[in-house]
Protein backbone atom coordinates (compact mmCIF):
# COMPACT_ATOMS: atom_id res chain seq x y z
CA UNK A 1 0.00 0.00 0.00
CA UNK A 2 2.79 2.40 0.97
CA UNK A 3 4.54 2.12 -2.34
CA UNK A 4 1.49 3.27 -4.23
CA UNK A 5 0.64 6.03 -1.75
CA UNK A 6 4.16 7.35 -1.73
CA UNK A 7 4.40 7.14 -5.51
CA UNK A 8 1.22 9.14 -5.88
CA UNK A 9 1.65 11.58 -3.02
CA UNK A 10 5.32 12.57 -2.92
CA UNK A 11 5.35 14.17 -6.40
CA UNK A 12 2.67 16.54 -5.05
CA UNK A 13 4.72 17.48 -1.99
CA UNK A 14 6.24 20.69 -3.39
CA UNK A 15 2.93 21.92 -4.83
CA UNK A 16 1.05 21.15 -1.63
CA UNK A 17 3.61 23.07 0.40
CA UNK A 18 3.50 26.06 -1.96
CA UNK A 19 -0.32 26.08 -1.74
CA UNK A 20 -0.19 25.73 2.05
CA UNK A 21 2.16 28.72 2.35
CA UNK A 22 -0.13 30.85 0.22
CA UNK A 23 -3.07 29.86 2.42
CA UNK A 24 -1.42 30.32 5.80
CA UNK A 25 1.16 33.07 5.13
CA UNK A 26 3.37 31.30 7.65
CA UNK A 27 6.17 28.77 7.23
CA UNK A 28 5.58 26.78 10.42
CA UNK A 29 1.83 26.64 9.94
CA UNK A 30 2.31 25.56 6.34
CA UNK A 31 4.69 22.79 7.41
CA UNK A 32 2.21 21.56 10.04
CA UNK A 33 -0.58 21.74 7.50
CA UNK A 34 1.32 19.67 4.93
CA UNK A 35 2.35 17.13 7.55
CA UNK A 36 -1.22 16.78 8.80
CA UNK A 37 -2.43 16.44 5.21
CA UNK A 38 -0.05 13.56 4.56
CA UNK A 39 -1.01 11.88 7.83
CA UNK A 40 -4.73 12.14 7.08
CA UNK A 41 -4.28 11.10 3.46
CA UNK A 42 -2.25 8.03 4.40
CA UNK A 43 -4.89 7.07 6.93
CA UNK A 44 -7.69 7.59 4.44
CA UNK A 45 -5.88 6.07 1.49
CA UNK A 46 -7.56 2.65 1.80
CA UNK A 47 -10.89 4.39 1.24
CA UNK A 48 -9.58 6.44 -1.69
CA UNK A 49 -11.32 5.26 -4.81
CA UNK A 50 -8.73 4.25 -7.39
CA UNK A 51 -9.42 5.86 -10.71
CA UNK A 52 -10.64 9.11 -9.17
CA UNK A 53 -8.48 12.21 -9.10
CA UNK A 54 -5.75 11.76 -6.49
CA UNK A 55 -4.36 15.28 -6.82
CA UNK A 56 -7.76 16.89 -6.24
CA UNK A 57 -8.22 14.51 -3.28
CA UNK A 58 -4.92 15.56 -1.68
CA UNK A 59 -5.54 19.26 -2.21
CA UNK A 60 -9.06 18.86 -0.80
CA UNK A 61 -7.67 17.27 2.35
CA UNK A 62 -5.14 20.08 2.71
CA UNK A 63 -7.78 22.75 2.15
CA UNK A 64 -10.29 21.19 4.56
CA UNK A 65 -7.56 20.84 7.17
CA UNK A 66 -6.71 24.49 6.70
CA UNK A 67 -10.35 25.53 7.00
CA UNK A 68 -10.65 23.90 10.40
CA UNK A 69 -7.41 25.44 11.65
CA UNK A 70 -7.34 28.64 13.69
CA UNK A 71 -5.94 30.64 10.76
CA UNK A 72 -8.42 29.03 8.40
CA UNK A 73 -11.36 29.95 10.59
CA UNK A 74 -10.13 33.53 10.73
CA UNK A 75 -9.35 33.68 7.03
CA UNK A 76 -12.62 35.12 5.87
CA UNK A 77 -13.80 32.10 3.92
CA UNK A 78 -17.26 33.18 4.92
CA UNK A 79 -17.28 36.45 2.94
CA UNK A 80 -20.47 37.08 1.07
CA UNK A 81 -20.69 35.30 -2.23
CA UNK A 82 -23.84 37.12 -3.30
CA UNK A 83 -24.78 36.58 -6.91
CA UNK A 84 -21.76 34.36 -7.42
CA UNK A 85 -23.70 31.75 -9.31
CA UNK A 86 -25.16 34.21 -11.75
CA UNK A 87 -22.11 36.31 -12.44
CA UNK A 88 -21.02 36.29 -16.01
CA UNK A 89 -17.43 35.90 -17.03
CA UNK A 90 -17.99 38.84 -19.35
CA UNK A 91 -18.00 41.10 -16.31
CA UNK A 92 -14.23 40.76 -16.20
CA UNK A 93 -13.69 42.43 -19.53
CA UNK A 94 -10.52 44.38 -19.08
CA UNK A 95 -10.78 48.09 -18.50
CA UNK A 96 -7.05 48.25 -18.04
CA UNK A 97 -5.27 46.10 -20.60
CA UNK A 98 -3.21 43.52 -18.72
CA UNK A 99 -0.48 43.85 -21.28
CA UNK A 100 0.08 47.44 -20.11
CA UNK A 101 -0.50 46.51 -16.51
CA UNK A 102 1.92 43.62 -16.50
CA UNK A 103 4.59 45.47 -18.39
CA UNK A 104 4.79 47.85 -15.47
CA UNK A 105 4.21 45.49 -12.60
CA UNK A 106 6.89 43.17 -11.34
CA UNK A 107 6.78 39.71 -9.89
CA UNK A 108 6.85 41.03 -6.33
CA UNK A 109 3.89 43.27 -7.04
CA UNK A 110 1.89 40.37 -8.48
CA UNK A 111 2.80 38.26 -5.44
CA UNK A 112 1.62 41.01 -3.10
CA UNK A 113 -1.60 41.36 -5.05
CA UNK A 114 -2.25 37.60 -4.84
CA UNK A 115 -1.42 37.64 -1.14
CA UNK A 116 -3.95 40.38 -0.48
CA UNK A 117 -6.80 38.56 -2.23
CA UNK A 118 -9.47 37.01 0.00
CA UNK A 119 -8.71 33.30 0.48
CA UNK A 120 -11.63 32.16 -1.67
CA UNK A 121 -10.22 34.11 -4.61
CA UNK A 122 -6.58 33.32 -3.86
CA UNK A 123 -7.14 29.57 -3.78
CA UNK A 124 -9.11 29.39 -7.01
CA UNK A 125 -6.59 31.49 -8.92
CA UNK A 126 -3.65 29.45 -7.58
CA UNK A 127 -5.31 26.13 -8.38
CA UNK A 128 -6.12 27.26 -11.93
CA UNK A 129 -3.06 29.23 -12.96
CA UNK A 130 -0.27 27.81 -10.79
CA UNK A 131 -1.39 24.19 -10.35
CA UNK A 132 -2.96 24.25 -13.81
CA UNK A 133 -5.98 22.32 -12.57
CA UNK A 134 -8.96 21.92 -14.88
CA UNK A 135 -12.28 23.47 -13.82
CA UNK A 136 -13.42 19.92 -13.01
CA UNK A 137 -10.44 19.34 -10.69
CA UNK A 138 -10.96 22.69 -8.98
CA UNK A 139 -14.62 21.85 -8.58
CA UNK A 140 -13.67 18.56 -6.88
CA UNK A 141 -11.02 20.21 -4.72
CA UNK A 142 -13.10 23.00 -3.29
CA UNK A 143 -16.44 21.24 -3.61
CA UNK A 144 -18.33 23.78 -5.70
CA UNK A 145 -20.08 23.39 -9.08
CA UNK A 146 -18.09 24.09 -12.25
CA UNK A 147 -20.24 27.16 -13.01
CA UNK A 148 -19.26 28.61 -9.66
CA UNK A 149 -15.60 27.83 -10.36
CA UNK A 150 -15.85 29.88 -13.54
CA UNK A 151 -17.58 32.86 -11.98
CA UNK A 152 -15.32 32.80 -8.93
CA UNK A 153 -12.26 32.72 -11.17
CA UNK A 154 -13.61 35.68 -13.12
CA UNK A 155 -14.17 37.63 -9.89
CA UNK A 156 -10.74 36.65 -8.56
CA UNK A 157 -8.97 37.81 -11.71
CA UNK A 158 -10.98 41.01 -11.71
CA UNK A 159 -10.00 41.68 -8.09
CA UNK A 160 -6.36 40.95 -8.87
CA UNK A 161 -6.42 43.32 -11.82
CA UNK A 162 -7.96 46.09 -9.72
CA UNK A 163 -5.39 45.55 -7.01
CA UNK A 164 -2.51 45.75 -9.51
CA UNK A 165 -3.98 48.89 -11.04
CA UNK A 166 -4.16 50.51 -7.59
CA UNK A 167 -0.62 49.51 -6.81
CA UNK A 168 0.64 51.01 -10.05
CA UNK A 169 -1.27 54.22 -9.48
CA UNK A 170 0.12 54.43 -5.96
CA UNK A 171 3.72 54.08 -7.17
Amino acid sequence: MRGSFEELAMPLFDSLYNFARWLTHDREEAEDLVQETFTKALKGFPSFRQGTNFRAWMFRILRNTFLTSRTGLKSGMTVSLDSEEGESAAAVTAETPESLLLAHSNQKMVQEAIEELPVIFREVILLCDVEEMSYQEISETIAIPIGTVMSRLARARNALRQSLTKKLQGE
Binding site: Y17, N18, V110, Q111, I125, D129, L160
Partner: peptide
Amino acid sequence: SIQTAGKRFSPS
Protein backbone atom coordinates in the same frame (compact mmCIF):
# COMPACT_ATOMS: atom_id res chain seq x y z
CA SER B 1 2.37 36.24 -14.75
CA ILE B 2 0.33 34.60 -11.99
CA GLN B 3 1.92 31.25 -12.74
CA THR B 4 5.42 32.64 -12.33
CA ALA B 5 4.59 34.71 -9.26
CA GLY B 6 2.62 31.87 -7.69
CA LYS B 7 5.44 29.35 -7.68
CA ARG B 8 7.01 31.07 -4.75
CA PHE B 9 7.62 28.75 -1.83
CA SER B 10 9.78 25.63 -1.59
CA PRO B 11 9.59 23.18 1.28
CA SER B 12 12.63 22.50 3.41
